[in-house]
Design a protein around this nucleic acid. Structure first.
Lengths: 221, 221
DNA sequence: GAAGACCCCTCACATCTGTGAGGTCCGCCC
DNA sequence: GGGCGGACCTCACAGATGTGAGGGGTCTTC
């Protein structure tokens, strides 16, 4: 399995140094960017490449906080996982992030007895869509978006942006057949009761756009 | 050619009587409803059947005016033509109707030397999409919506509502082939420069929704 | 009344779509 | 370790889609 690509943002140079070394030793992750500065973390190329970002909640005065940084990253890569790292209350996350955008957000308490294996595990799970911020729900009462895989959301996202399946396949470097399988699975989730009169693709796109609509004005990615 | 189906709303009983008689004598139109009361004119079945409504601007106190009635009718049949009839200033129409909804709106001055032939002609043209409210533009600088036929707009409207082509064909009582021709023509207008990456249908639907978006909050038809 | 312009329709054809069937490869849990 | 469940993948096939070509109406304009 491919290494999970990680962006790491931590204010404290000492902690950043230790964690960077540990992450670089882990074969399961590939650290593509480690910085203490929010604006450096906002490099669009790195964000598009990354699977998940590990972000300190308190980035220090003069910088946005980790939640706002995570939200900003989502604008360049709407499927990137976000792990918020803090020694203080992590409830803020649940209160600050719009529920519709919350998929793939996790929290990681800063504690003294933390193992790098656990960090890696959380990074990998969050990259795959794990959402630990609200109390996790039983399998069948998750929202439609949560019942889709990261790839299905990526494919639906591009489709809802008016990109045709062949091009989606090219950009994700997977086969056209695979894209159609993902779309088909996404349709089943997004349009659970298809009416005979329904245009399946359009219905699914409308539902998807409804579910992912952000409340803030948007300037495309 | 099928007779143009007309709804007639006129406050003044005398004028309504004369016009009703004249319209009933005209083989080119079929008067399906003539009334002095706005709420009677809002019969959804009649509106869906009608091609065009001829509406007095001033419907008297206690009633909505003709423009609001026309806008309300458009909610039940978004392609119905509206002819506003008045002896006073008709500028109000251009100022009151959202530009995006203005296709198929005409005005008819109330004058003493009016011929029923002219009225019939304006009704028929408006039913086909004539828009006389703003100064008419030359053929190629009309908006995309104006460059589509009534049928193309109807087909796009239903498609943009998530109805599949087969069902559109059934509801409009035309063939599936004909629907696909109309869609194809609509795509050419709505997506003039197709990119190789574009999903043609989705792009066209998005453009169409953008062009027809009303500013008031909507409660579906 | 011939010539054009539109509009609507059918037909044919290449291509695209949606889905069922069935494979591989993980990670997880007795 | 064996079994299970997910995520991905390929393949095949019926059916839907987009468009060019071409026919038939109805107006309008010389």
């Amino acid at each position: 399995m491919r290494a999970t690509r990680v962006i790491y943002v931590e204010n404290d140079p000492a902690l950043r140094g230790i964690m960077t070394a540990l992450l670089e030793e882990s074969p399961e992750v590939e650290l593509i960017l480690a910085t203490g500065l929010a604006h450096e973390a906002l490099d669009p190329d790195a964000i598009r490449l990354a699977d998940v970002a590990l972000i300190d909640l308190a980035l220090g005065s003069g910088q946005m906080n980790g939640i706002d940084l995570g939200l900003a990253m989502r604008k360049a890569n709407e499927n990137i996982g976000i792990v918020i790292h803090s020694q203080y209350s992590l409830d803020t996350v649940a209160r600050s992030v719009p529920p519709a955008a919350l998929i793939g957000w996790s929290t990681l308490p800063k504690s003294g007895d933390m193992f790098i294996e656990d960090v890696v595990h959380i990074l990998r799970e969050t990259a795959k869509g794990l959402t630990s911020v609200p109390t996790s729900l039983s399998r069948d009462e998750r929202s439609p978006l949560e019942r889709m895989t990261v790839r299905q959301r990526a494919v639906m996202g591009m489709t809802a942006a008016g990109i045709k399946p062949q091009e989606v396949a090219r950009r994700l470097a997977i086969s056209h057949d695979a894209v159609r399988q993902d779309l088909s699975a996404a349709y089943r989730v997004l349009v659970p009761d298809v009416q005979p009169a329904d245009d399946l693709r359009l219905r699914a796109v409308f539902t998807y756009l409804e579910l992912t609509r952000r409340d803030d004005a948007q300037d495309g990615l």
